[in-house]
Simulated assay, not measured.
Amino acid sequence: MSDPTPSEVKAANTSLGDLVGEVTRDLSTLIRQEIALAKAEVKDSAAKAAAGAGMLGGAAYAAGMAVLFLSIALWWALATLIGGGWSGVVVAVLWFVIAAILYAVGRSRLTRVEGAPQTVETLKEMPNTLRRNRENR
């Protein structure tokens, strides 16, 4: 027969209460470490997301500036054909049409958003479930 392992010797010589206390402490330590790891991971992910969002913001600003200067160039080019005032009106009307199309498409997509219908349904069922559990006691 083989010699008992150190864990077996400790289990044989330690009370159940001490063993449960040790397991509880170890579990508590493990949970604290997992929470600390999760916090560190979330902080790292948030920093990366913030950097990415900043880059996207910069790209949006640059795109806006490009659209502005292309609009000015179009205005200037049209000014040689139809005059400065009317070319400004043409460019403004063009942007109004683009804005109206984007508004219509965006609004129609927003009306199709359902939210979280399954979650809402589940939440509506919870009071009934809790009532049934109280009645069964």
Rank of each mutant, 00 (worst) to 15 (best):
A50N: 08
K10T: 07
K10Y: 15
R32V: 10
T29M: 08
G52Q: 11
T29E: 14
A73H: 02
G64K: 00
L30T: 13
R25W: 08
A63E: 04
T29P: 03
G57C: 05
A77K: 08
L37H: 07
A38C: 08
I72C: 06
G58L: 00
R32Y: 11
A77R: 05
L68I: 09
L70F: 12
G54Q: 02
W75T: 07
I72W: 11
E22H: 11
G54C: 01
S71R: 02
A53G: 01
V23A: 14
A47H: 02
A53C: 04
A59K: 03
K39D: 15
R25H: 13
A47Y: 02
A66E: 12
A12C: 03
A40I: 02
L56P: 04
L27R: 10
L74N: 02
A49C: 01
V42L: 11
W75E: 05
A38F: 03
K43P: 05
L68F: 13
V23P: 07
L19K: 01
F69N: 01
S45R: 09
Y61P: 04
A47Q: 10
G58F: 00
M65K: 09
K10R: 14
Y61C: 07
Y61M: 11
G57P: 07
A11L: 09
D44T: 09
A77H: 03
R32G: 10
A66F: 09
V23L: 13
A53L: 08
S15T: 14
I72F: 14
L56Y: 05
L19M: 04
A47S: 09
V67D: 01
A12G: 07
D26G: 15
K10Q: 11
V42R: 10
E34M: 12
A59S: 05
K39C: 13
G54Y: 01
N13M: 11
I35W: 02
A12F: 05
L19Q: 05
T14S: 03
A62F: 00
D26V: 06
I35R: 11
G52S: 15
K43Q: 10
I35F: 06
G58K: 00
Q33H: 12
L68Y: 15
